[in-house]
């Protein structure tokens, strides 16, 4: 079963420039694939995604060859932590595609919003609208009034 939730902190302009910082970047000249390794940090607007390794996959150009100008998706592996102004999420892997603005986090996902935390197997967030959906053995811990949840 799944739980729909709004990740308001993540609602942002997906047209903003994406900045990727890492220790090293390896680009295969012929195939055009690019792999960032060594505490990689993807920053766009208020979203900060940290991971051990990020592999960049390019969109396919009209004739099928990889169009190295547009990034189709960034696959972050090796333990991913996502931080925004109000939320934080952790997972084993995450796939972020700037074109469509979707972020899919998989593998023991734990999302904390203010006092509440939701855990499950996959969390898909549409960054344009900030709508999120958690699937797979969802467990929610709600902070009752005392700690002044959001």
């Amino acid at each position: 079963q799944g739980t729909n939730l709004t990740v308001s902190g993540l609602q942002q302009d997906t047209g903003a420039p994406v900045e990727v910082t890492a220790d090293s970047l390896q680009v295969d000249q012929a195939a055009g694939s690019a792999v960032f390794t060594g505490n990689v940090l993807i920053v766009q607007g208020t979203m900060r995604l940290a991971a051990a390794e990020v592999r960049v996959a390019y969109a396919k150009a009209a004739d099928g060859t990889p169009d190295t100008g547009t990034i189709d998706s960034m696959t972050a592996t090796g333990g991913v932590t996502l931080a925004t102004a109000t939320e934080a999420a952790e997972a084993a892997e995450a796939v972020y595609s700037p074109q469509s603005g979707d972020l899919v986090m998989t593998g023991d996902v734990l999302l904390t919003q203010g006092g509440n935390s939701v855990s499950g197997q996959t969390l898909t967030i549409d960054l344009d609208t900030g709508a999120g959906r958690m699937d797979g053995r969802v467990k929610t811990v709600l902070q009752t009034g005392t700690a002044g949840g959001n």
Partner: peptide, 25 residues
Amino acid sequence: QLTSQDGDYVLVFNGGVKLVYEPRN
């Protein structure tokens, strides 16, 4: 560094890399 790794040629940037990508949607 541009070097050849088992057949294919790899361009390696290290020592701290920063990429700024402008999404074209």
